[in-house]
């Protein structure tokens, strides 16, 4: 209960923002917050986290807010890497062979979700394979 008090602001904000499937529980001195929300809410919750626990140094919260759970197959995705191209791989993991690349800010479509980290995408050129979800941002509308 102590951790729920420490991170109360996050829990309250997540509730107020209508986070779906919100789960908050504590185990062995770590608080776990899971749920699905849009990207704006996710960012807001993470900024609160950083405010309460600068540098995330306490290690007493594991927060997993999924902002892409609502993305449907066929949805358009923008490649949002920092600067480089995004690798398209044969399988879900960086140990798998690179079979293609998608340019930064290119728009691709979602074929299938393998898991939260790896999605199968298809470029307009017909290249299809696994890419890391962290660099895929759903195109609004």
């Amino acid at each position: 209960m102590v951790l729920q008090d420490k991170y109360k602001e996050i829990i309250d904000a997540a509730t107020a923002a209508g986070t779906q499937d919100l789960l908050v529980r504590e185990q062995d001195g770590v608080l776990y917050i899971d749920g699905s929300a849009n990207g704006t809410t996710k960012q807001q919750l993470w900024d609160l986290y950083e405010k309460i626990d600068p540098d995330y140094a306490s290690g007493d919260l594991v927060m997993n807010i999924n902002s892409v759970s609502g993305v449907q197959e066929g949805a358009k995705l923008k490649i949002t890497t920092n600067s480089s191209n995004l690798n398209i791989r044969k399988g879900p993991g960086t140990t798998h062979e690179i079979i293609g690349k998608a340019a930064r800010h290119e728009i691709v479509s979602l074929v299938r979700k393998e898991n939260d980290q790896w999605w199968v995408i298809k470029t307009d050129d017909g290249e299809e394979g696994y890419s890391y979800t962290q660099y895929l941002t759903p195109v609004e509308g």
């Binding site: 993470w46 540098d55 995330y56 140094a57 290690g59």
Partner: peptide, 19 residues
């Protein structure tokens, strides 16, 4: 740091220690 933590905490760890 925040991006790193977002990525790591989404992997269902028991804890993330950044000491």
């Amino acid at each position: 740091r925040q991006k790193l933590m977002m990525a790591l905490q989404a992997l269902k760890p028991k804890k993330v220690d950044v000491a």
